[in-house]
Simulated assay, not measured.
Amino acid sequence: MSEKKSSLIPKSALTKAWLVWETFPQTCYNYERMMGQAVAQVFSCVIYYLYKNNPEKRKEAMKREIEFFNVHVEFGACIIGMAIALEEQKSEGKNIPGEFITNLKTSLMGPLAGMGDTIWQGVVIPILLAICIDLARSGNGNVWGAIIYTVLILAGAYALSYINFMFGYRAGSEAIMDFLEKGILNKLIKGASVMGCMVMGGLIVNYVSAVCGLEIVSSAQTYSIQTNFLDAVCPKILPLGATMLIYYLMSKKRWSSLKIIALIIVTGIVGGLTGILTY
């Protein structure tokens, strides 16, 4: 598909549609349609330009776009742009079945959700949070850490979403499918997963605290289990072990977050009272 040139939808309406998608992606979020109603709200910005004098066609398109949809907001923005482009071509008389638009959206939302969750939530947000939390902890309540994080994460989200939205609208479905078929997506996800593991390792060392308070006292010396044994074998092994245990309980045993929190509280109280754990 050649580069998409707008013939029916003005740039202002297209920008408004993107702004609605990025700002209100989970409007009326529910288990039946997920983001479907937000997608319909996006199309409400452009549908009149496609079928000005045909209310039945407008209804048909809106029913098609309100169906089940769920994706990462920023990375999935290209799907919304692509759907608008296809609906525009369909309104111009191109032979594009409505089922094709729906099926294409459905087939793309899974891979792009996986890529977005891995890269954005698994790498970008943790790294930015770690930097800004350290900045906020420096000094006596440095507020700039929170301000910088808010500004950067919002600016990055809106910029990435806009670029992807317009890419999907102009490049169309073939460019996106070509991107997926070349295996670029899998390479990005694999690289982001490795980076995410490295980031989580760094966060565990800095923000998870677990110290063994047990000591063996003799007439000659005091032998600390934490300092003389655990730190010598593997520094920060208790925070790593605690993190992996929680991961195991959540992923394998399907424990809820409330159970995990209760376990941490009980372990902390028992460990503190018995002296097994300390500061």
Score class of each variant (00 low, 15 high):
residue 9 I to D: 00
residue 10 P to V: 09
residue 11 K to V: 14
residue 12 S to M: 06
residue 13 A to H: 00
residue 15 T to N: 13
residue 17 A to D: 03
residue 19 L to A: 03
residue 24 F to Y: 06
residue 28 C to M: 09
residue 31 Y to M: 11
residue 41 Q to Y: 08
residue 41 Q to A: 11
residue 43 F to T: 04
residue 46 V to W: 04
residue 47 I to E: 08
residue 47 I to M: 08
residue 47 I to L: 05
residue 47 I to C: 07
residue 49 Y to S: 09
residue 52 K to C: 07
residue 53 N to C: 04
residue 57 K to S: 13
residue 59 K to E: 15
residue 60 E to A: 14
residue 60 E to N: 12
residue 62 M to V: 12
residue 63 K to G: 07
residue 67 E to Q: 15
residue 68 F to M: 14
residue 70 N to A: 01
residue 74 E to Y: 09
residue 81 G to L: 12
residue 84 I to W: 06
residue 87 E to C: 11
residue 87 E to H: 11
residue 89 Q to H: 12
residue 92 E to A: 14
residue 94 K to S: 09
residue 95 N to R: 15
residue 95 N to W: 15
residue 98 G to F: 08
residue 98 G to L: 15
residue 101 I to L: 13
residue 101 I to Y: 12
residue 103 N to T: 15
residue 106 T to P: 09
residue 108 L to K: 01
residue 110 G to Y: 08
residue 111 P to E: 13
residue 117 D to E: 12
residue 120 W to S: 03
residue 124 V to P: 01
residue 127 I to M: 09
residue 127 I to Q: 07
residue 131 I to N: 05
residue 132 C to V: 03
residue 133 I to R: 00
residue 133 I to D: 02
residue 139 G to Q: 01
residue 139 G to C: 01
residue 140 N to C: 02
residue 141 G to L: 11
residue 143 V to E: 12
residue 146 A to F: 09
residue 147 I to F: 10
residue 148 I to A: 07
residue 149 Y to S: 04
residue 152 L to R: 10
residue 152 L to V: 14
residue 153 I to S: 12
residue 156 G to C: 06
residue 156 G to A: 06
residue 156 G to P: 02
residue 159 A to M: 07
residue 161 S to Q: 07
residue 163 I to C: 02
residue 163 I to K: 04
residue 173 S to T: 07
residue 177 M to R: 14
residue 178 D to F: 00
residue 183 G to K: 07
residue 184 I to C: 04
residue 186 N to C: 04
residue 191 G to F: 10
residue 194 V to L: 11
residue 203 L to V: 06
residue 206 N to C: 10
residue 212 C to G: 04
residue 218 S to G: 13
residue 223 Y to N: 01
residue 223 Y to A: 02
residue 225 I to R: 02
residue 226 Q to K: 00
residue 229 F to A: 11
residue 234 C to Q: 08
residue 235 P to C: 06
residue 239 P to D: 07
residue 244 M to N: 02
residue 246 I to F: 13
residue 249 L to E: 04
residue 249 L to K: 10
residue 249 L to P: 01
residue 250 M to G: 01
residue 258 L to F: 14
residue 265 I to W: 02
residue 268 G to I: 03
residue 269 I to E: 13
residue 269 I to L: 14
residue 269 I to C: 14
residue 269 I to G: 10
residue 272 G to P: 01
residue 276 I to G: 03
residue 277 L to V: 08
